[in-house]
Simulated assay, not measured.
Amino acid sequence: MSLKLTVIFVICLIHFYPTMSSDPDPVQDFCIPETKHNSSRTARFTEVPCRNSSNATVDDFVFDGLKRPGSFNAMGFTGISVNPAAFPGLNTLGMSFVRADLDVGGVNVPHYHPRATEIAFVLEGMVYSGFIDSTNRVFAKVIGKGEVMVYPKGLVHFQMNVGDSPATIYGSFNSQNPGTEKIPIAIFGSGIKGELLEKAFGLSAKELEMLRRKFSP
């Protein structure tokens, strides 16, 4: 490749990269996925054909699955994701939603969303909420009913119910597929070589095995 072509190629990459760093803008009013493709793959930006728009109904744009919380896990946490797999009307619109409930003392473990910024609204309860920036500085405080906190894209964040009753949070994302990496599971449940983890965290083989059993998916 000539020097001139190389320069043009680099300029094109610089120009187009920002437009590829978030969900693309839709090119039509909406895209309800074909029923046979309406599965968990829908939220993954695979190429899913749109249903004929004349066959869309108002029910494609209404979701009633957030009325009640799910079942709490061992951490006292439950979350209901609202993405195109559950709510077809969201497809191609570049957004998604979650209802998160925390039992008394419940924890939403440190995690991050690689493709989205999240804004969280406390519907009920008192929640210790925060995130960690790239200098390892913690931004955290207790927020209550009616308050909102934002977690910048890609930064580790967390919540813990510090009240005396269950807490409910509604979270909104600027991506239809934000992705979630839960730190304990990503580290201890992913099959990383044990020797590395023992050295990185100062763990004995027995302690590591205990953590792996606890956080295996």
Rank of each mutant, 00 (worst) to 15 (best):
T6H: 13
V7P: 00
F9Y: 12
F9K: 14
C12A: 09
F16I: 14
P18H: 11
M20R: 08
S21C: 11
D23Q: 08
P24M: 01
D29R: 09
I32C: 06
P33D: 15
K36L: 14
H37M: 09
A43Q: 14
A43T: 15
F45M: 13
V48K: 01
V48S: 04
C50G: 07
C50A: 04
R51G: 07
S53I: 10
S53L: 06
A56G: 12
T57S: 07
D59E: 11
F61T: 03
F63H: 07
L66S: 09
K67C: 08
K67W: 03
P69Y: 09
N73Y: 05
G76K: 01
G76M: 03
F77G: 05
F77L: 11
A86M: 13
F87K: 01
N91A: 08
T92N: 04
S96D: 02
R99C: 12
G105Q: 10
G106I: 01
V107W: 03
V109G: 03
P110D: 10
H111K: 05
H113S: 13
A116N: 02
A116Y: 04
M126H: 09
V127N: 13
G130I: 06
F131P: 06
N136E: 15
R137P: 00
V138L: 07
F139E: 09
K141E: 00
V142K: 00
G144A: 02
E147H: 03
P152Q: 02
H157Q: 07
Q159E: 10
V162A: 06
P166Q: 07
G171E: 10
G171Y: 09
N174S: 02
S175H: 00
G179I: 06
G179H: 02
E181A: 14
I183T: 04
P184E: 01
I185D: 13
S190V: 05
G191R: 15
L197Q: 13
E198T: 05
L203F: 00
M210L: 15
M210C: 15
